[in-house]
Design a protein around this nucleic acid. Structure first.
Lengths: 216, 216, 216, 216
DNA sequence: GATGAATGAGAATTCATTCAT
DNA sequence: GATGAATGAATTCTCATTCAT
């Protein structure tokens, strides 16, 4: 698209490439770090996947470790802000909101390459404790807060029972996290039949949560 | 000494002596592989933690990779056989069985060091596809089969609704797997307050599952 | 413009324009090579200090090594020719000549940035034996010859004892060389108090030489 | 000597080698650093010259830089202490003491491989300012102090004129330092005829110093 | 059996040099 | 002519593996 549309001053090819480099490298690095882990990924592989040479990578990131940190920072907390707004404005029932929330989580994060970040953090937390803390603060905590608000809203509306919000949030989030963890760990190795259809699983999950929490 | 004493179930009599030291090495290796990942763990660390020298490790395991495989094989499918027997013989309600099953899972696996294996497999599946397949066959599949039997038993007894057994099993297992994954990834890095009490979480999970699946 | 104007001694008319920028590069390179050594100096630093880009440097010098050689050739044997003439024409006593020679050496070479060349050659001689030989032939030998002539002149005039000219030249030159070596090695690192005033040192040196060599 | 004398428990060969390793590596490193400079010397060369592999070097020194620092510390201030004692107890004339001091300096340091350290420090001072300071404090300062004492002793005995001790020390030391600098820089590259016989040069130097400083 | 010194293949990083713009 | 992004050969350093004792 970009290459075909006639623009007044199309940046010189090399300039356009230069601007795209970090993004391409981050994308390649995310995929490889997710697949093989930080230590088992060679920077040369990352560079090759991004279509550049080893040396070029170091033009944009001073070390493999900084590349890793940039990958995490780049992919953390992308859509979280929007989700907060939507929940605050939502007008339907809690059952509808939960189904909607979970489905959107899948289309906007869980089903995208960025979801590999979740598995990556799980795998490397002990080797990068500061990043783990960052992820905890920027992604985990806000996500749980969002889910707690959804549940609290249902309680306030008389649709859901009064329950421990923290535990409920963990139980609502767990299958989502589990789904992406599997998507990037066992799923690529093992027969496709083992993985249930994500949307069917998520719909049943939303249904189970609603049944499990509803006021009787 | 050990090799002569008649014990009820000696794994393989001739190998018992040899397995005394390997046991310590496997234990050390499990802990370190879980914490740092396969590539980031140095064999010298494993040996040191087991109280032997680097050379000794290679007396028992021909390579780091074989050590890893032994760790997985040693820790996979420990209590699964017993669980099958117990479910088959269980006499109480489905609600009781689910609570009992989940609680025992925690005391016999989820809360033990062996549970690190789950996180380890998640992290290293792509680097060791044959082990991932082995784990899938020996642990994941049987576990899901066991859970499906529990649900089927509830349906047969008229206590639970008819649901997709595969999806139900995934949703029942997901929070358990998620719990151990966190126990070995973010939990060691981040404030204790973030982790809810495992038993409280698991009890609520069992309760939610029962409410979500019960016949109305 | 420059290339057309007839000047008294244009080095090579056609090359004058080209040599404007190389001059800055050579100056920058001399300073950095002296400070850090050939291998530890990055061409990018040289270019930056000369106010041009890395690529531009290679427009004027085909390689880092050629740049180094140009630095040496540029700075070797600058004032030697004049000194020979002055000694030949000198009319005063040997004591006056020695004092004068040494003071001029300081103002015209030893105290200038060009003196860094001496330290540079000391440091890199083994890595550039052909340059070392060039320096030996073009600078060291003529300098010693000049000093030998001064001593011979003193002997001929009956002011100085008959001594081994070669040894005397070495002993007269050594403190000069030593002074610039220190100026570019330890002096920049260590408290100024350690460095004696160069002119006081050189005056005492001239005085000691005269006393050491004079006819009794 | 050691290897020939029959000792009760000759260490096992490997143990004897192990103990000798650091020394062999330091010796090899000194020679190569002196010849080519720190940056231009490859650790593999050092290892090869010491008869071991690259990896072995890192068993004894954590980095190339630490190896360099160890080389300097190992070779600095070897014979300085003895020299102080000998000067304090010396009974002869100042002329004899100066000749003796300079001759011994040559046999015990200037003429040995350890003298390369002097050139090495000159070359690398700017890149290792802390080592330069260390050398200044541990070697240069004490050496000059020693020489000042010799001159002061001569003044006290009425043999030498009153002169600036600091300047005198510099002028006495300069040709010695210059001699070793040349020994390890231009001398290996250029025809032997250029280098005067060190002992003849040093004798003339001592003679010139005595003549230059003596009371008239 | 146990040790740990030694090895060397492999990975991260640097930097002189090239070349399209 | 000038630039600086890109390259890849070269170098430091790591660590699984071997083996003599």
């Amino acid at each position: 698209m970009d290459t075909l549309s006639p623009t007044p001053r199309p940046h010189r090819p090399s300039a356009r490439r230069k601007e795209a480099r970090p993004g391409e490298l981050l994308e390649a690095a995310l995929a490889l770090f997710v697949e093989k882990g930080f230590a088992a990924t060679r920077v040369e592989e990352v560079a090759a996947r991004a279509g550049v040479s080893k040396g070029t990578l170091f033009l944009y990131f001073p070390s493999k470790e900084e590349l890793f940190k940039a990958v995490v920072r780049e992919n953390a907390s992308r859509h979280l802000h929007d989700a907060f707004l939507e929940v605050a404005e939502y007008a339907g029932t809690s059952a509808e909101l939960l189904h909607e929330f979970i489905r959107r989580w899948w289309t906007q994060y869980g089903g995208t390459p960025a979801a590999g970040l979740t598995k990556l953090i799980m795998s490397e937390a002990a080797n990068f404790p500061d990043l783990a803390q960052y992820y905890q603060d920027e992604v985990v905590q806000p996500s749980h807060e969002l889910v707690r608000r959804i549940v609290q809203r249902g309680i306030d509306r008389g649709e859901l029972r009064e329950v421990d919000l923290t535990l409920a949030a963990h139980l609502i989030v767990a299958p989502l996290v589990q789904l992406v963890t599997w998507r990037f760990s066992l799923a690529p190795c093992c027969p496709a039949t083992l993985m249930p259809d994500p949307l069917a699983l998520l719909d049943m999950h939303a249904d189970m949560v609603v049944r499990g929490l509803r006021q009787e």
